[in-house]
Design a protein around this nucleic acid. Structure first.
Length: 362
DNA sequence: AACGCGGGGTT
DNA sequence: AACCCAGCGTT
């Protein structure tokens, strides 16, 4: 293979002849991932679900959730007909729960406005909640072979290195240039394979830490490779200090051994999920307790704190547990406050740290 | 344009 | 412990 035949300049000039794409496709045929759960069968619904689950989530993490989800809700109509609580329960532990709420809302919109199907039009896809430019392109390419560029974390890393693009990809100017490069490399055919090939290369060869450049089909004219700067590209996100927050958690059992769960509001952290009642401080916990419950606040048992890290703050949860508690008559069991049998916990959407806490007591 | 939004993996 | 990952929606 001669250098002249594969210069980056040639890649971006002319109609449809892009050795970048051709080299990637040839590599994919031999070294790509061809047995991911959503590839067999590769229906629009399964492609869509996988793309949503894979937003900010790695394949190994998402795969078991995908299997469980499609087993319970095998098609778009089943998803649209399911209660939101069922969808959140299937999502429980996966994180970014707005994805599940948007997925559910989008399914219902498809039933209403798109004859029960996922729309093939790219702008109609983007108009659905939870589907942005990159996810819409990935769905269109994978489900129907339509010609659209994706720009996820894998593609950003590959392009930043291959073209030597500086600057954190989170900044608008850098992202804009990366979109342009992604569009310029699009082949004329095999869009489903090409889309998968980019993600496979980024996930298995052009990795963040130690990229396997000797195995890369783009190595000969990759700027980062030839200039020995793979460690500096892409430019990392600027660091910022993460604040530490604290909260008290009220872990309440009634005389029948049921636990009191509260549904969180539809916005903010853990939106619409079921958690243990939470208070900012001792006074808040006491007030919440005495306002709603029959029992002695002072008899609560203080348990070891639980640490949980979000991307934007750290949270230390201080649990306090009571037994034999009852609700005041004026505060009945309702839609947002429920006594739950231990066996029913699996059917509810519960944040991972709260679920771990509840299950540790068994 | 900047920020909010989880959980898990890697180093 | 820091950083990243098949991003999107809101402000």
């Amino acid at each position: 293979m001669s250098i002249a035949a594969i210069t980056p300049g040639n890649d971006l000039i002319g109609a449809g002849e892009d050795s970048f794409a051709n080299r990637l496709l040839d590599w994919f045929d031999l070294n790509g991932r061809h047995d991911l759960p959503w590839q067999h069968p590769r229906t629009p619904y399964r492609v869509w679900l996988s793309e949503i689950m894979l937003q900010q989530t790695q394949v190994r993490t998402a795969a078991p959730y995908f299997e469980r989800f499609v087993a319970a809700l095998p098609d778009l109509a089943a998803l649209a007909a399911a209660p939101l609580d069922d969808v959140l329960a299937l999502w429980s532990g996966l994180g970014y729960y707005a994805r599940a709420r948007n997925l559910h809302a989008a399914a219902r919109l498809c039933m209403e406005c798109h004859d029960g199907e996922l729309p093939r039009d790219i702008d109609a896809l983007i108009a659905l909640p939870g589907i942005g430019r990159s996810t819409a392109a990935a769905i269109a390419a994978q489900a129907w072979g339509d010609r659209h560029a994706i720009l996820d974390g894998n593609v950003k890393r590959v392009l930043a290195r291959y073209h030597g693009v500086h600057g954190w990809p989170g900044t608008p100017a850098v992202e804009k240039s990366l979109w342009t490069l992604a569009e310029d490399h699009l082949p004329q055919a095999r869009l489903a394979d090409y889309t998968q090939a980019q993600m496979d290369l980024g996930a298995t060869v052009c990795t963040r830490g130690e990229p396997a450049c000797p195995r890369c089909p783009l190595q000969v004219d990759c700027i980062a490779r030839t200039e020995r700067r793979t460690a500096e590209l892409p430019t990392p996100r600027p660091g910022k200090t993460i604040p530490q927050r604290h909260a008290l958690v009220l872990w309440l059992y009634d005389a029948q051994g049921r636990v009191l769960l509260q549904r969180r509001p539809p916005t903010g952290i853990w939106a619409s999920l079921w958690t243990l009642p939470q208070a900012d401080d001792e006074a808040g916990a006491r007030h919440w307790f005495e306002h709603r419950l029959r029992g002695d606040f002072e008899r609560g048992e203080t348990l070891p704190p639980v640490a949980h890290a979000f991307s934007h703050y750290k949270l230390e949860l201080q649990p306090r547990r009571w037994h034999g508690i009852a609700l005041r008559d004026a505060v009945g069991d309702n839609d947002d406050l429920r006594w739950v049998e231990p066996a029913a916990l699996a059917t509810l959407g519960i944040p991972a740290p709260i679920r771990r806490l509840l299950e540790a007591s068994h």
